[in-house]
Simulated scan of single mutants.
Amino acid sequence: MRNWQDSDRGKPTEGQYNQPVRPSNLTIALILTAGVLAISFGSVLVRLATTAAGFESPGLSLVISALRLTAASLLLLPAWQALRGARLEAGAWIYAVLAGVLLAVHFATWITSISFTSIAVSTTLVNTNPLWVALLAWLWLGQRPSALTLAGIAVAFAGGVVIALGGSSNPGSNPALGNLLALLGALAASCYFLLGREAQRRGFGIGLYAAVAYSTAAVVLLLLPPLFQTPFSGYPPAFYLWVVLMALIPQLIGHTSFNWAVKWINPVIVTLVILLEPIGASLLAFALFGELPGAQVLAGAGVMLAGVVLAVLGNRS
């Protein structure tokens, strides 16, 4: 895999990108802002969908994940036309498909976690991506983290322990399991972003890449609900409305915005921006459900986010 620092300087090599000119910082900032606003609705829409269904279970969480990605894939069908003129380098398809598989793992674990723990805890833990990206860069790319980055990782994990031991006005039926699933979702998402970046570096445009990755994730997820004997049909119309809104807002707008941005700037910076999601999600959860995070959860979240900031500052290059 190529070193991501090359593209951070805005000087892609000849033939490396479909787009020869790096977008302006303002354009990148605006798209990242739209992405954060969009993904903030993700957890709330999941909660609304499960409420409309009338029950919560791992099987239903997988149904929601599968239908969300399926709807997004169908909306992206016109993007497949770009395949005719695409000039893809070796391995581009492998990275795009693997990214889709990791996206499926991300949704299967994270959306299921919301059935067992609170929205505040789930969204905080699932957004520890900068830590995992820094670690993966060390293990995968051989880029050793600085001492400040390692200190940030330690602080963030301490915050995660505080969160895991904390609670909220609606802590969930099995907080320990929910917290673990959310962390697994974070690791899968980190791999998904890095793989997607490489797929785009090897010739995929953002539309075609999103179509391939989301379709792959949909196929994987569609196989899982039958294992839990959970049907895809028979739910109230409101359930399907919330799922379609998930596909439109947090998926097509949110995820696609970050997938686009990760091609042009350091992935650690992109995942740092995603950390704003818990703030928006928690505010929406309070407004719609009256769900207040407990003091211990807030303290742990503060410690974790401080650790993430230290980790990113140590990885400024």
Score class of each variant (00 low, 15 high):
S215G: 05
A188E: 10
G196M: 10
T216M: 09
G196T: 13
R197M: 01
G207K: 12
A218K: 08
F193E: 07
G205M: 04
C191R: 07
V212H: 00
V219A: 15
L221R: 08
E198V: 05
E198H: 00
V212R: 01
R197W: 01
S215V: 06
L187M: 15
G205F: 02
L208V: 02
V220P: 15
V219D: 10
V220H: 12
A199G: 15
V220Q: 11
T216G: 11
L221G: 06
A210D: 00
A218C: 04
R197D: 01
E198I: 08
L221M: 09
Y192F: 15
V219N: 13
Y214K: 04
E198W: 02
T216S: 14
Q200W: 03
S215L: 06
G205L: 04
L222E: 12
L208R: 07
F204C: 01
L221C: 08
R201T: 04
Y209W: 03
V212G: 01
T216E: 05
R197K: 08
V212A: 00
A211S: 07
L187N: 11
G196A: 12
T216Q: 08
L222P: 13
A218L: 06
V219S: 13
Y192M: 15
L221N: 05
V219T: 14
L195I: 10
C191P: 08
S215R: 05
A188W: 09
Y209C: 02
R201M: 04
R197Y: 01
A211R: 07
A189M: 12
L223C: 13
L194D: 02
R201Q: 06
V212Q: 00
Q200I: 05
L222F: 15
G205P: 07
Q200H: 10
S215C: 06
F204D: 00
A210I: 03
Q200A: 12
L222S: 14
A217W: 00
L223R: 10
A211M: 04
S215Q: 06
A211F: 02
Y209E: 00
R197S: 02
V220N: 09
Q200L: 07
A210P: 09
G203M: 05
A218Q: 05
G196R: 14
A218W: 01
Y214T: 06
V212M: 00
V212S: 00
S190I: 10
S190M: 09
L223W: 11
G196E: 03
V212N: 00
L221W: 05
